[in-house]
Design a protein around this nucleic acid. Structure first.
Length: 428
RNA sequence: GUGCCUGUAGCUCAAUGGCAGAGCACUUGACUGUGGAUCAAGAUGUUGCGGGUUCGAGCCCCGUCAGGCACCCCA
């Protein structure tokens, strides 16, 4: 007990309280996903390094991935994201699947990065994707799912918003500004960083990247123009769809949303909490129409997003939106053990009650009743049973409801029914 | 990889360079067959680790490790 080997940095221990939150999040994600007709799926946790090499981004692959050689000498990666696995699995069965495919998943991912608020090295992520539809309507569906999730957890538009942009629009704007195609990734990075840097530093950085003063002015005007989306036919349709879907108030056009991943080709979006302490995105995604072809499949349009559990967990906690009744009691009933000679009788009683469908734990050894009752109280048990010498002789059981403190003697055969009555009459 | 902050009892935290403490939790009893509330008693420490300064270090200095936060980067 003196020396406890510490948990691996960046991992989180899920004690029952935290596990209850994670399970609740998972169930909420499931409900929202299924409400839109999506099917749950899962990919391997181990993947080949080369799966990510093509399109996941230099930083993610070379610096943030957990990579090791297996005994066969293959370079194996603990998956840092899901989309490449999705592309692979779709490509493998491309001729058998019925499109559009709507899939969702919730599982663990690993990235070796500096731990800080909202960022751990092991995290859980909701992924949801629609493949085989190339329309603003499909994009709108994914944005609406994100908004639907916010509604489901009680986040209001004043608390969390989804910011949308379109890389095609930005590409056209960059073209109009005369930014060479091979410089656009840099400029995209510049755009992405505008809110994070001081204005002076940002401008200096822009000039450093080789932008002319005229281009810088144009870029500034572009980023300040919140109605520029109307120049994009796709975004006009997208916003019309969002209104029809009843989630318009959750969505805003934001020209500074670019997203880092290389494979996005069209609509991109990212959600942030509006006022909270976390400046990281709650979720993010977009359209990636080239990825299937890039991993060796037939070209296939796709759109999707991902949401990590850490940031949303902090946001919901800070806003008091985590359900208060998540604590799962260990059992409804505790059977006490009066004495060594009555231990087997207690075990028989517990077994009978379980047979009747109750959640029952039995104290593991004879102990003072005060200790056993205290244990029942501290662990949240609703009903405690005592089989002492008197009860055993009469073929009865003492049934005590802890909340009210009332106790009655019940015939052995009637205990299950009596306990069930108590549990039903209990005020939650 | 860079910077800032923090490491003291199981937990949360005190302690001018001068006897290491409190609250909560825990154990026992008041209560020999019954939880919560109350009261009483009790147990609990290599002050993260290693050096240095000092008559004397939890406190000051150096190093180191761990954690948190912010950069970097980023779903």
């Amino acid at each position: 007990m003196k020396k406890i080997i510490p948990a691996v940095k960046g991992t989180r221990d899920f004690y029952p309280e935290q596990m209850a939150v994670r399970t609740w999040l998972y169930e909420t994600v499931r409900k929202v996903s299924e409400a839109f007709g999506y099917q749950e799926w899962e990919a391997p946790i181990l993947e080949s390094l080369e799966l990510y090499a093509a399109k996941s981004g230099e930083e993610l692959v070379t610096k943030q991935s957990y990579v090791f050689a297996d005994r066969g000498g293959n370079q194996i990666t603990l998956r840092p994201e899901l989309t490449p696995s999705l592309a692979r699995m779709i490509a493998q069965k491309q001729n058998q699947l019925v499109f559009p495919v709507r899939w969702w998943s919730f599982g663990p991912f690993w990235r070796y990065e500096q731990t800080q608020k909202g960022r751990s090295r092991e995290f859980f992520q909701w992924n949801i994707d629609l493949l085989g539809a190339d329309s603003p309507e499909a994009d709108a569906e994914l944005v609406a799912i994100a908004a639907g999730f916010f509604k489901a957890v009680g986040l209001r538009p004043a608390q969390a918003l989804i910011y949308v942009n379109d890389r095609r629009l930005m590409d056209a704007e960059f073209e109009a500004l005369g930014v060479a195609p091979d410089r656009r990734m840099d400029v995209a990075g510049l755009v992405d960083r505008r809110d994070k840097m001081e204005a002076d530093a940002w401008q200096a950085y822009a000039l450093e990247l080789g932008l002319s003063a005229r281009q810088l002015d144009g870029l500034g005007a572009l980023l300040d123009d919140r109605s520029r989306w109307q120049k994009s036919a796709e975004l006009r349709r997208l916003f019309a769809c969002l209104e029809a879907l009843g989630v318009k108030e959750y969505v805003e056009y934001d020209p500074s949303i670019m997203r880092g991943l290389l494979y996005y080709t069209g609509t991109v979006f990212e959600a942030f909490d509006v006022a909270g302490s976390v400046r990281r995105s709650i979720l993010g995604g977009g359209r990636y129409d080239n990825l299937l072809a890039d991993v060796g499949g037939e070209p296939l349009p796709a759109v999707g997003f991902a949401m990590g559990d850490a940031v949303i967990g902090i946001v919901l906690e800070e806003l008091g939106l985590l359900p208060a009744d998540l604590q799962v009691g260990p059992a409804e009933v505790l059977v006490t053990v009066f004495s060594p000679d009555l231990q087997l009788e207690s075990l028989r009683l517990a077994a009978d009650l379980r047979q009747a469908g109750l959640k029952v734990s039995c104290y593991p050894e004879p102990a003072k009743l005060s200790k056993q009752f205290k244990y029942a109280d501290r662990t949240g048990v609703a009903v405690t049973l005592v089989v002492g010498p008197d009860e055993a002789a009469e073929g009865r059981v003492a049934v005590k409801e802890l909340a009210s403190g009332t106790q009655e003697l019940v015939a052995r055969a009637e205990v299950a029914a009596a306990v069930k009555r108590l549990l039903e009459s209990r005020v939650p």
